[in-house]
Design a protein around this nucleic acid. Structure first.
Length: 586
RNA sequence: GCGCCUGUAGCUCAGUUGGAUAGAGUGUCAGUUUCCGAAACUGAAGGUCACAGGUUCGAUUCCUGUCAGGCGCGCCA
């Protein structure tokens, strides 16, 4: 519809110029928008005001000329000039009814478009370290990432959803060592658990399983383990040196093969827990990409070599640095430590190069906002490797601060004190949690009140939207109880009976859905869709309270039923994109 | 100190990429059900869009500065 109007204006403009009514000037992009106020018609354009300056004419004068030059049309009933020079269009009743037929014909496909057709996009999200279960802080990224993916898919992109598994690096060694120490404990050894180890109860579970499956295979005496280890913090030492000492000792005492077994028991257990958790949360993936695989395949070393030959690495203090300042970063970054180990950043350089080489047209990273300082160096590395850094888009998700009532909940993965995503899902439900997470724009800090979310109060808008869907289903059940049926053919042919203000409001709301989906997708803003759905639900509930659908006038009744079935379809489609169920009753 | 994000109704948040009289939910107050589900609906009250300048036909939106809050500034990941 917008496009039709755009062509309309454009042809009017060229006509006016050919006739010499307007000076020959370069045409700006014609902007058509829906009006906020019904009194202004359905659509409006500000083109006359935009042309005022280059044409050196009064905007209202331009508008008058344009309106005179508009071609004939049967889908517009009224064109008017208002305010400083807006041109307002009112659609014919017929054309606004058309959307209902489109919805019923397209069904679950209504609203999808082909804008992204032929383009591939990779979306990486969550990618939490597999050192413990996901907590509610990860939930927002999980919901946001999966809805952004669904949106892009809905407008035609071929979407590849990916989780980057940080299965290499020091944090994983700390986890492996934590598991081993708990295992030794389970074997009956007497030891003091390091203050910097992972203290969560899931570590105990993993250790118990390891003990049950392998017996005393990995048993070493606690005395041996703790000999010559720097003191821990509570004893006046350094907790980092203490845990690093323990890691080295674990590797030495166990040997590579056994250490790897312990390591994998922790990694696999937690990773499979994360997979199940995300799957149950409705956030599905096409690929789980292992950091370790990048190291072992030599891709990390290869990337470093590539940077070296590009002459953007230099040695200082025994380490290899990347000259990221040449590309706008605040300071240079280490890629190979003085002990010869590559940094996390080195893996990430290789990972992003790998993503680019896989040929995606667009690569989207969804990170917590605390990683924002990381963007310049990743983009710098891509530029240094002759890649177009603009193919990478990083979307930042602000933290959700958790509250229990008015009390802030303190969380720390290491200490094991956190509310897990699974707990949230079990208490609040997947639907409410997802909708709640996605309701706010991602760059907005968010207060997540557990009590509120748990309380099933109608503060939670997901019920409101779902209820609208269930209500339509309920009307249809009522219809059946009265031995009546919905006749689509009759309904569609009598749509002109829909003349009430509530009905007109619903019709324009329904027509907006494809536009909402598109702008939500292209701007990566799921909250636009969520807000649209609550608005649509509100218009429906208002209509419901004002009018009856099952009435004696059969034609009117069928027309109204047809309308609300279209509403139900759009709600179901929208909720589907968000990953929330559309129940028939609740 | 530097960088990024944020500041809109008592509270939680929108605001269609610069448009017409800044909107919802919640809370407060007053109402609606012999009738398809009241998880609903109607109405009222509630605002110096943090503050000060600037850009132009026009600014909550863009620019600069100030103030306030969050985050980041490792040879951690």
């Amino acid at each position: 519809m917008k496009d039709q109007l755009k062509n309309f204006i454009t042809s009017s403009l060229t006509a006016a110029m050919e006739q010499g009514k307007l000076p020959e000037i370069e045409l700006p992009d014609v902007q058509i928008e829906r009006t906020k106020d019904k009194a202004h018609g359905d659509f409006a354009t500000n083109i006359a005001m935009m042309l005022a300056k280059p044409a050196k004419m009064n905007p209202r004068q331009i508008a008058t000329i344009l309106v005179e030059s508009l071609p004939e049309s049967d889908f517009i009933t009224k064109v008017s000039i208002a305010g400083p020079g807006f041109i307002n269009f009112t659609l014919s009743a017929d054309s606004s009814l058309q959307v209902v037929k489109e919805i019923l014909a397209a069904k679950e496909k209504f609203g999808v478009s082909t804008i992204g057709e032929g383009k591939t996009v990779q979306v990486e999200f969550v990618s939490a370290n597999p050192t413990g279960p996901l907590h509610v802080g990860h939930g927002r990224g999980a919901a946001f990432g999966s809805v952004v993916s669904n949106l892009l898919s809905a407008v035609g992109f071929s979407v590849h959803r990916e989780y980057y598994v940080n299965d290499a690096g020091r944090q994983m060694d700390i986890l492996a060592t934590s598991v081993w120490l708990r295992y030794l404990d389970a074997c009956g050894e007497n030891l003091t658990f390091p203050s910097n180890g992972y203290k969560g109860s899931y570590v105990l579970d993993i250790a118990d399983t390891l003990h049950a499956e392998h017996g005393d295979e990995f048993l070493k005496s606690a005395f041996k383990v703790f000999t010559d280890i720097p003191a821990d913090e509570p004893e006046g030492g350094d907790k980092e040196l203490h845990i690093d000492g323990l890691i080295e000792k674990a590797k030495a005492l166990l040997g590579e093969s056994s250490y790897r077994k312990v390591f994998n028991s922790g990694l696999n257990s937690i990773l499979s827990d994360i997979r199940d958790d995300l799957s149950d949360f409705g956030s599905d993936y096409d690929e789980w990409f292992s950091e370790r695989s990048l190291v072992e395949s030599g891709e990390v070393d290869k990337a470093i070599e590539q940077l070296k030959s590009a002459n953007v690495l230099y040695q200082k203090d025994g380490a290899w640095w990347f000259k990221s300042t040449d590309y706008g970063d605040e300071k240079d970054r280490v890629v190979v430590r003085d002990n010869g180990q590559t940094t996390y950043f080195a893996s990430d350089i290789a990972y992003h190069l790998n993503k680019f080489q896989r040929g995606f047209d667009e690569v989207i990273d969804i990170w917590g906002s605390d990683h924002h300082g990381y963007i310049p160096r990743v983009k710098a590395s891509l530029t240094a490797m002759n890649q177009d850094k603009d193919r990478l888009k990083v979307l930042l998700v602000q933290f959700a601060v958790l509250y229990r009532g008015t009390e802030k909940v303190a969380m720390s993965t290491r200490s094991g004190q956190f509310v897990t995503l699974r707990q949230l899902r079990e208490e609040v439900g997947k639907d409410a949690a997802r909708f709640f997470y996605v309701l706010r724009s991602a760059d907005q800090h968010m207060d997540f009140d557990l009590e509120l979310a748990k309380s099933q109060s109608n503060d939670n808008p997901v019920y409101y939207v779902q209820y609208a869907h269930a209500r339509v289903c309920s009307v249809l059940r009522q219809l059946a109880e009265r031995d009546l049926v919905w006749d689509q053919t009759v309904g569609e042919s009598k749509l002109s009976r829909l003349v009430e203000d509530h009905e007109k409001a619903l019709l324009t709301m329904l027509a907006r859905y494809p536009e909402v989906l598109e702008s939500s997708a292209l701007n990566h803003t799921p909250h636009i869709l969520a807000h649209y759905l609550t608005d649509l639900a509100r218009d429906f509930h208002t209509y419901y309270n004002a009018h009856h659908f099952i009435v004696d006038d059969i034609e009117l009744s069928q027309a109204r039923l047809t309308l609300i079935i279209a509403v139900r379809q759009v709600i179901a489609n929208g909720l589907g994109v968000i990953g929330v169920s559309a129940p028939e009753s609740m």
